[in-house]
Design a protein around this nucleic acid. Structure first.
Lengths: 340, 340
DNA sequence: CGGCCTGCCGAAAACGTTTTCGTGAACGTA
DNA sequence: TACGTTCACGAAAACGTTTTCGGCAGGCCG
């Protein structure tokens, strides 16, 4: 009759099993596997071999219980559906994945009570930290200063300046777009963008105007065209711009959706892009931008990098004193064919 | 001098603190909070009050250690970027959220070794179960039968029929689309779809052909137009279909991206949609479908429901014997204006 | 040979719960 | 009064680790 192994008994392998197989105590087994110095090389090897043989994997719950570190963080998003959360989430997950920390995903669906509920659950699970990623780039209410773990706000900054928030540099993004158009010889640049109540819309417009002013240029189309973040608005606004300034030679759109509408309207007017009018979007939403006709140049917010940065800052805050303030992440140009 | 509370000491509140404040033992405190019967009503009330006063939240790690249930599940996606994972993930998160289980999110980025790595980590964390959501609707390698926890495969079925997989009913989706077109009096229906190596493309086409055959109709455009999942292909294929069958009165596109291309090409030929040609897409990818001109009718795969179902099946499997096989989730029509 | 240091190892406490079991009190019954 | 039963409650074990500390060899020095 075979000697019964832990696995064959349907039990999950524990450190005790490894120790017994290696002929050492539990304490030594633990030290051997954790690279503690006070164990002979030969013994360590024996333990490791035993662990592999049993395919031992340590119970992180027990580890967390004693070390007071769960090795987990909470990712509290208020809107999974919104496409901006996802890249941030990917970046964060990526940055953590390389370490040995796992990520709890919670979607509050923009509901405050659901958020509270998730927060409670996460704290109960003794997460080592939290990343809160918002749905829109404007400030959101802080979770409070009395939390037992550090918190990083990503995309939506916290309304409490004592918290650490990571946000997109929308002003810089606006500058970048206009700078690119100017460098390609455009002089009569219009700006069509989304909802004026969005801070991001204001910031992008401001950046654009700043860069124009530096060059001594005025905005074409008489004004910044605020509206909604939709293709339909892009089409409509384009027609109005063309009416005011028929010789416009570039349009900076506040989002890729709007830019698609702009392209569509320009086609209808038989204007060549980028021959007669250059177009640049914002977001680098690939399915929209890359499939446009012609493929759309656009500004990328580097959201994945923002997510990775959030993870790094969270780590720093977990063992160190927490920092407050707002940190911005720069944008980058993605040049395709609509602006060459 | 104030009596020192646990919080003021910077310590996290434990059951011991609650018990002391309520003047009972730890055991009784535990029983009181867990609605065990063997505790006097008055005592229970006192304990609960103490717990609230200290805003006690039980350490789930300790709970999990002893109950052998961590109350967590792993969500192992192979491709977060792909838009199909997200709704499934939302559905699953939603279904779990109402219960007291939390979700670990892991993105393998389509990499097998990363997947193995995440799997190890999840098992180490003693998750109670796993949901594996794939990137494309074709079969993927099973994680194996020897896992200590139940696994549900969502979207991509496992290649091992002993596993339980949940997939979209693509055949039904194809039928649904064509049925809708027929009901609206269309007789010359063409089908333009994506990569022929995708099982989903084959299935949708099969469903469409079945439904046509039932009506005694033939496919317009001489063949099923397989190609790629892109707008460009939609444009190109539409031109070819028009060349073959100038009087086509409906086009069923295998995806919304393709449908956008179809619409674009029809506009260029000055054909009215839906007056002369009806168009229906697949996926209900809102930003594409709702913003199209005219807004695009399409087939929705009910992915959120699929995610919720996966969560339910996982629960059933956690305490019950695991079931195998493939279960399909039906599609539904989303009627907008392109097909009326 | 006695003392001291060094190198390895194991016993045991600790983390914060749940759960089993024992115990004392109160009560009813013979 | 003696005895069994029920009712609340507490002591202690258990979950699977990490870490502190003490002990036992063996080697070196005086």
């Amino acid at each position: 009759m075979e000697p019964e192994t832990p696995q064959s008994a349907g039990r999950v392998v524990t450190l005790r099993d490894v120790a017994k197989l290696a002929g050492v105590s539990i304490a030594t087994a633990s030290k051997a596997l954790n690279n503690q110095p006070q164990v002979r090389a030969e013994t360590r090897a024996r333990v490791i071999r035993a662990a592999e043989q049993l395919s031992f994997s340590p119970n992180t719950l027990a580890q967390g219980l004693i070390t007071q570190r769960s090795g987990t963080v909470g990712l509290l998003t208020s809107d999974l559906e919104g496409r901006f959360s996802i890249p941030i989430l990917m970046g964060a997950e990526d940055a953590f994945g390389s370490d040995q920390t796992s990520v709890f995903l919670c979607d509050a669906r923009g509901d405050t009570v659901r958020e509270k509920h998730h927060l409670r659950a996460l704290l109960s699970r003794r997460v080592d930290g939290l990343i809160v990623v918002g749905a829109r780039p404007d400030a959101r209410p802080s979770l409070g200063r009395e939390l037992p773990v550090p918190v990083i706000y990503a995309y939506s900054p916290s309304d409490d300046p004592a918290d650490l928030s990571l946000v997109t540099d929308n002003v810089g993004g606006g500058r970048l777009a206009v700078d690119h158009l100017i460098r390609h010889g455009r002089q009569r640049i219009a700006h069509i963008t989304g909802d004026a109540t969005y801070g991001a819309a204001q910031d992008r417009a401001r950046g654009a105007l700043e860069r124009l002013a530096e060059e001594g240029l005025e905005l074409a189309g008489e004004q910044v065209w605020f509206g909604s973040w939709s293709e339909a608005w892009g089409r409509g606004a384009t027609r109005m711009v063309l009416q005011r300034t028929p010789d416009v030679d570039a349009i900076f759109a506040g989002s890729d959706e709007i830019a698609r509408g702009v392209l569509d309207a320009l086609h209808q007017e038989d204007l060549d892009v980028p021959g007669q009018v250059a177009v640049i979007g914002f977001d680098n939403w690939k399915v929209l931008a890359a499939n446009a006709r012609p493929p759309l140049s656009t500004v990328d917010m580097n959201l994945e990098q923002l997510g990775r940065l959030a993870a790094q800052r969270l780590f720093a805050a977990i063992d160190g004193k927490p920092k407050g303030g707002v940190e911005t992440v720069g944008c980058r140009l993605v040049i395709r064919e609509s602006s060459s």
